[in-house]
Simulated scan of single mutants.
Amino acid sequence: MSAASASGIAAAPLPETAPAPALRPVPETRTAAPIPAPAPRRATGDDAQPAPPPAEADATERDCRKRLRTLGVSFRDAAPVRDPAGCRIDHPVLVRTLSPQVGLRPPALLNCAIAETAARFVRDVAAPVAARRFAQPLAALHRVSGYVCRPRNGSAKLSEHAFGNAIDLSAFELADGTRIEVGKPAGDGERQFLRGVRDRACGPFKTVLGPGADADHATHFHFDLAERRGGATFCQ
């Protein structure tokens, strides 16, 4: 007889082993797909990002900016333009005025050389001709295009606009708010003014096109600094 029986106490049954809990599968860790970076925007002049001025070693660009300040041009340096299509400006400037009195509307992204030529054109040609013809100051030039990454019309060759080396002007604004539209002059006085500034732009600018040259330039003047053999100009 066992000791437990002898004492009259029943032996307690051994507890059963509890079943192990079922293992749940660990969810797979997924690596989040990278979010693609947004495609870079092409600068047009209105959204050009500021940039430090050209390196001190670049004397040509540095001296050009000194001349812009002397002429009273309001501008700031913009980030270099590099486009896969080949459009490029190494040291662009965003120009807001072409003299202390004459604005550029809207501001234009240009290379420094044509910005300087445009400022001298205003000082030496457009402003004095307007003052003589209309007896009031010139207040603004309205532009259609400055830098634009595109080919020439009807050609695969890049336009001078693609290098910030051209500017298209659609109107001249006088101090009283009168706008002299290149494509729609009102009366002989405006026609003679436009003819005078167009004729005298040929030389400072290397290309001058406007109404009558072709259908693409029926409503604006195109001025650029395209290099030609012997420094020749092309004006129509």
Rank of each mutant, 00 (worst) to 15 (best):
M1K: 04
A3C: 11
A4Y: 04
A4K: 04
A4D: 14
E16A: 06
A22K: 06
L23Y: 00
R24E: 03
T29C: 00
T31E: 01
A33Q: 13
P34G: 00
P38F: 13
A48G: 13
Q49Y: 08
Q49D: 08
A51N: 10
P53V: 14
A57C: 12
D58Q: 09
D58H: 12
T60N: 09
C64W: 15
K66I: 04
R67D: 05
L68S: 03
R69G: 15
R69F: 14
V73H: 06
D77Q: 13
P80M: 12
P84W: 01
H91Y: 13
P100V: 06
P100D: 05
P100K: 07
L104V: 07
L104Q: 03
A113W: 04
I114E: 02
E116T: 10
V122G: 03
V125Q: 06
A127I: 08
R132M: 10
F134D: 11
A135R: 15
L138R: 15
A140G: 12
V144G: 00
S145P: 00
S145G: 05
V148G: 01
R152G: 01
N153W: 00
G154E: 14
E160G: 09
A162C: 11
F163G: 10
F163M: 10
A166Q: 12
L174M: 09
D176R: 05
G177M: 14
T178K: 11
E181V: 12
G183K: 08
A186R: 15
D188N: 10
D188P: 11
E190N: 04
R191C: 00
F193W: 03
G196Y: 00
R198A: 13
R198Y: 04
A201Y: 01
A201V: 06
F205R: 01
K206V: 01
K206L: 06
H217K: 08
G231P: 07
A232S: 13
C235V: 05
C235H: 07
